[in-house]
Design a protein around this nucleic acid. Structure first.
Lengths: 105, 105
DNA sequence: GAATTACTGAACCATCTGGTTTACTTTATA
DNA sequence: TATAAAGTAAACCAGATGGTTCAGTAATTC
């Protein structure tokens, strides 16, 4: 799966976003990724699987450890989708500004 | 709720993204929003509620109809979060380019 | 070769999700 | 005033999600 559904769903969990944030500092073993969280390593392993299925990270087996690294390319599709709405949220700020000006009169 | 969890979760459904896309053409009644979909109006109503709870649209009661309009401002937070990774997906393309160049030699 | 480490798989559980149908409220129209 | 239209609420269902524990596998170290 590599569609927007799975990308956004994968990003909708704070633990998973924290994992991705951690990976911006470089690749990490699964046990390293699990350390900061107050949950079992199995749970983190499942989160990593969700991220991997979404294509957001890549897992490489190396000896008995699994090394994860970020694959941010998939995020671009999500970002591109959101970009279509950029004019709308900036326009909304414009409207807000007009409302605020109107209140001053 | 107005956090990234709920924003991304709301965006992780194709029906809901289609509803938001429809609203870029202007406000719409709930029955108009429901028309294109092969599901009950109740189901669409629930989707609209999810989007409203996420702050992605605003519902205004007007007579016996509900008029929905886009509130794209919430998307900006999601977009900002993704922007933090922009360097990583562009860098990844750079790496890919290097790999491709390497293969040519 | 035995013990330890790093992880996965399987079973289980509670809760959430996305859909349904039926019943209801509210507003507009004939 | 009766009827139709627009929408929500409630109950229900199947399947997904996010967590657990326990057992197993594979690689490393003692």
């Amino acid at each position: 799966m590599h569609n927007l559904d799975t990308t956004f769903a994968a990003l909708s969990d704070g633990t998973r976003r924290a994992i991705l944030a951690q990976l911006t500092h470089g690749e990490a073993r699964l046990s390293d990724l699990a350390a900061p969280f107050d949950m079992s390593q199995t749970a983190v392993s499942k989160h990593v699987r969700v991220l991997r299925d979404a294509g957001l990270l890549v897992v490489e087996k190396r000896g008995r450890t699994r090394h994860c690294r970020l694959n941010a390319a998939v995020m671009k599709e999500a970002s591109d989708w959101l970009d279509n709405y950029q004019t709308f949220w900036t326009r909304q700020f414009d409207n807000l500004a007009q409302v605020l000006v109107g209140q001053e009169e």
